[in-house]
């Protein structure tokens, strides 16, 4: 048994008649909104999204992407398929080919279906490449595009990030 103890919550007593008559508690409530009004005039809590963006935390999990070896510029992925196995939505598919150096393998094609990806970050944790993980959670979170096929991100997109969607008709949001 823990140190928690049960406490019966006291219910506030009914209001005395003079408080009821002069609407005391109503006016108190209205003073709260008025205080917010006087401040909210200048300090809204909301953010004007397309123009203003909140800073992302370093650990933010956006859509997964691939990266090269930071020094040699080689592909880090060694097709251990750990990400493919752990992915809860089965959105990763890897085709492999032997590495040209004759040692190990490398992905011929690496596909992440961004439509299915749930950004859980398990793939980045499971990644078995050396010295850093090949697949990582980027800070991309906007995915609007003009076709479903464009969400099946393949190696070009996984390495270079998301190109801006082709210019459509009409203005971009927010002028």
């Amino acid at each position: 048994m823990s140190e928690a103890r049960a406490v019966v919550i006291p219910r506030p007593a009914p209001l005395p008649w003079w408080k009821r008559f002069f609407l005391v508690e109503m006016l108190q409530g209205m003073s709260v909104t008025m205080k917010h009004y006087l401040r909210g005039w200048r300090e809204p809590f909301t953010v004007q999204y397309p123009e203003e963006r909140l800073p992302l935390d370093p650990r933010f999990r956006g859509y997964p992407r691939l990266r090269m070896h930071p020094e040699t510029g080689d592909e880090l992925c060694n097709v251990c398929r750990q990400c493919e196995k752990i992915c809860p939505t089965l959105c990763i598919a890897i085709e492999e080919e032997p590495h040209p150096s004759g040692k190990g393998r490398r992905p011929r094609q690496f596909t992440v279906d961004y439509e299915r990806c749930c950004q859980c970050g398990l793939c980045a944790e499971a990644c078995g490449s050396d010295p850093i993980s090949a697949i990582y959670m980027s800070h991309d979170y906007e995915l609007a595009d003009y076709g479903r096929d464009r969400f099946r991100a393949q190696k070009d997109r996984l390495y270079l990030g998301f190109p801006a969607p082709p210019a459509g008709k009409g203005k971009a949001p927010g002028k």
Binding site: M34, G40, P44, T46
Partner: peptide, 14 residues
């Protein structure tokens, strides 16, 4: 606008 300011947001501004 008034209700927006009371709710610490901006209201229509586009």
């Amino acid at each position: 606008k008034v209700i927006a300011f009371m709710q610490v947001r901006i209201g229509p501004n586009r």
